[in-house]
């Protein structure tokens, strides 16, 4: 007697094993489980719905092609997110968004911004509804340049070390530190509800 496999009830590890043997249904279930998270990562970096959709789909296709390389050292979703991040970075490099970055970044590169910005301490205990807080964080992230946003995302949300971020972004650790500092300071200001004009 054969029992029909209930894919929805299986853990990721089992689905990955099945997909590694070519089981597309198992892979489809993995996509269904994690598509929002992967899309969200792409969107957080690219800030464009259409591009994020296309690129996250490309990440899934790539994952299928590389599935046998997945050893289970990290969780499947972590591995998948890394693929997505790499594709996003490639995409951003291609678009050379770095050239459209703001004057603020140039100021940062010469080391002037740190001193211009006041030290603002956002209050973590401020009674904000979680949804509202996330909404504010999203809006604040949108105001960062792609490089500052990427460093912040990779460090705070993906929990990557400085050297790992430097490797992925093809820059020095010093640049990562400087960008992270700037991104945090700017987020602090934005989350504290200050308008840009008040910075100057």
């Amino acid at each position: 007697m054969t029992t029909k496999l209930d894919y929805q009830a299986e853990p990721d590890v089992k689905l990955v094993q099945l997909a590694q043997k070519g089981d597309m249904v198992a892979f489809e279930e993995l996509v269904a489980r994690h598509r929002d998270k992967i899309y969200a990562r792409a969107f957080s970096m690219l800030r464009n719905e259409e591009e994020a959709t296309d690129l996250s789909q490309e990440a899934w296709v790539k994952a299928w092609q590389r599935l046998v390389q997945f050893q289970g050292d990290a969780s499947f979703v972590t591995w998948m997110t890394r693929i997505c991040i790499n594709l996003c970075l490639d995409q951003l490099r291609k678009q050379k968004r770095v050239r459209t970055d703001s004057i603020e970044q140039m100021e940062e590169e010469v080391g002037g911004v740190e001193r211009q910005m006041p030290i603002i301490t956002p209050n973590p205990t401020e009674r904000l509804e979680r949804g509202e807080l996330r909404n504010r964080i999203d809006k604040a992230l949108a105001q960062l340049s792609y490089e500052h946003r990427t460093v912040l995302i990779l460090h705070e949300f993906e929990e990557l070390e400085y050297k790992e971020i430097a490797k992925r972004m093809e820059c020095s650790i010093g640049t990562v530190m400087s960008r992270l500092f700037y991104a945090r300071r700017k987020m602090a200001v934005l989350l504290a509800g200050l308008k840009r004009e008040e910075l100057r």
């Binding site: 591995w79 890394r82 693929i83 790499n86």
Partner: peptide
Amino acid sequence: GDDKNANA
């Protein structure tokens, strides 16, 4: 073999 960060 696989290397770190999806390299080989």
